[in-house]
């Protein structure tokens, strides 16, 4: 045992300490995995619904074809889906971010109403990990102009 040089002793000791520390940190983070999530997925909300009126967040995809504007012009209804089959109907009154559209990611802050509709008070758009250039070539001029208008509005 005494054959180890002091610096090797320190190396071994520090190695053990680091492994123990990392394991402790990762275990703590792992234990937090439910509490530290920023939002419920639709499946999680269906399986384990929060109390009616409790402030929570719901995140998922805006289902294609589900987005409807109500007659008052500022209230929208849409359905949020996830990887599973669960669907949560959402209602929101207000202005949505530029990236919010059908088929894209969304995080809604709000609460569940007794009838199972999620009443959102804030809508955040969730970008995915893909970065794809917009192809202006091959588009008609009006379409390209519309695209440019859509993504630059509010930036000037």
């Amino acid at each position: 045992m005494s054959a180890l040089k002091p610096k090797h002793q320190r190396l071994v000791l520090l190695g053990f300490a680091l492994v123990a520390l990392l394991a402790a940190g990762l275990l703590a983070a792992w234990a937090l995995r439910n509490q530290a999530s920023y939002f419920y997925l639709p499946d999680q909300m269906k399986a384990n619904p929060p109390a009616v009126g409790q402030a929570v967040r719901l995140g998922g995809m805006v289902e294609k074809g589900s987005l409807k504007t109500l007659p008052d012009g500022v209230t929208i209804d849409f359905t949020v889906t996830g990887r599973g089959n669960a669907q949560i109907p959402v209602r929101f009154t207000g202005i949505v971010p530029d990236l919010f559209e059908e088929g894209s990611g969304v995080v809604a802050e709000g609460h569940l109403a007794p009838d199972g509709v999620f009443i959102a008070s804030t809508i955040l758009a969730k970008h995915d990990e893909n970065y794809v250039p917009r192809e202006m070539q091959g588009m008609t001029d009006t379409k390209a102009a519309k695209m440019a208008e859509k993504t630059t509005v509010g930036l000037q």
């Binding site: 520090l14 300490a17 680091l18 520390l21 990392l22 402790a24 940190g25 990762l26 983070a29 792992w30 937090l32 995995r33 530290a36 999530s37 920023y38 939002f39 419920y40 997925l41 995140g59 995080v107 955040l124 969730k126 970008h127 995915d128 990990e129």
Partner: peptide, 24 residues
Amino acid sequence: LVGAVNLPIINRSVVWWNSLHQPP
């Protein structure tokens, strides 16, 4: 050295937990 525990947590944060920030 102790602070280095935060590095894998930053790296994995978008995988372990639902987050508004997109995955890597």
